[in-house]
């Protein structure tokens, strides 16, 4: 203690540190290194974001100048049945698909974590679908899910099930999109796997000694210890699920076939901008989505304090 105190006094009495010539040069170099990124952030993120807020208050038909209309686009959103249908569908999609996706990814990661032979091979296999264009993947799945002639239904029928009309039945179509969205879960799995491999082996063994039941360890030890990864996957998953687009567009077109069952918020936004050329309206939708997802994310972070454990955290 005494030594520590002495050091502190010495530190306080020494003259304040100034940036010498070399220090200033270093700061300038650092700034220059960061500059491309800052320019990119400004030009490609901040300016478009502010422009979107502005365009949302205009009537802008894509070509020609935007005209200020105040909150008219938001008012139009409020009474647009397509907006409400799509918001409902998207919400359902997010609420259902994200937890399912996380559970499956965690299950896969737990399996991969046990695999010692060929682990690199399996990791690659699970990551590969992520590299495939979503359009191509969706089309393949649609062909697989074709009623009667599709291999999936042929197989299900052969096993004695009466399979649904995956893409034709409005009651099944949204679930089909959820199913499609589950396919590439390599990233989530890898994130979880990283978390699992970060758990010290002896902590895991201590848990084995404390209880013989695997699920005890999973629930009380493993999951709390990878809670930062769960939070990450949850936030990213929710942000992406609210922007579900490609699968929905490939399956349902711009009208959300069948019977608007697959009409997603981003599809309505997209068709407003590029099919109806109503960019102001699309910008208003984008603004609402931005604010909504932002609030949701903040809410998750707020709750996260009570369930996410960080390694460096001493609370």
């Amino acid at each position: 203690m005494a030594i520590l105190a002495k050091e502190n006094t010495a530190g306080a009495s020494s003259p304040p540190r100034r940036l010498g010539l070399a220090g200033r040069g270093e700061a300038r170099a650092g700034f220059l290194f960061a500059l491309p990124w800052m320019v990119g952030l400004t030009v490609f993120t901040i300016i478009p974001l502010l422009l979107t807020f502005y365009i949302a208050q205009t009537k802008f038909q894509i070509v020609g100048p935007p005209k200020y209309v105040g909150l008219a686009n938001y008012a139009a959103m409020w009474i647009d049945p397509a907006m409400w249908t799509s918001a409902r569908n998207t919400m359902f999609f997010a609420v259902v698909s994200v937890p399912i996706k996380l559970v499956i990814a965690l299950g896969l990661a737990l399996l991969l974590n046990r695999v010692t032979a060929l682990s690199g091979f399996y990791r690659t296999v699970f990551y590969l679908p992520f590299l495939m264009p979503a359009v191509a993947g969706s089309i393949v799945f649609m062909l697989l899910l074709t009623p009667d002639a599709g291999p999936v239904n042929i197989a299900l029928k052969a096993l004695g099930f009466s399979p649904p009309d995956w893409l034709l039945d409005p009651k099944a179509a949204l679930w089909t999109i959820i199913l499609l969205s589950l396919w590439p879960l390599g990233v989530e799995t890898l994130v979880f796997l990283g978390g699992l491999q970060n758990i010290p082996q002896d902590v895991s063994e201590a848990a084995d000694l404390d209880s013989p039941r695997g699920w005890h360890k999973l629930v009380w030890i493993t999951i709390p210890l990878i809670s930062p990864m769960i939070l990450f996957n949850l936030v990213i998953g929710i942000i992406y699920s609210f922007q579900v687009f490609t699968q929905a567009l490939v399956v349902g077109g711009t009208t959300g076939k069948p019977a608007e069952a697959t009409l997603m918020y981003m599809v309505v936004l997209y068709r407003a901008a590029f099919r109806y050329f109503n960019v102001g309206y699309a910008a208003a939708m984008a603004t609402v989505l931005f604010v909504g997802v932002l609030l949701l994310t903040l809410l998750i972070f707020r709750t996260a304090r009570s369930w996410v454990h960080y390694e460096g955290d001493s609370r």
Binding site: A134, V135, S138, T246, L249, G253, T254, Y270, F274
Partner: peptide, 8 residues
């Protein structure tokens, strides 16, 4: 026209 390809 129906699906405008897919505008990824």
């Amino acid at each position: 026209l129906q699906s405008s390809a897919a505008a990824g």
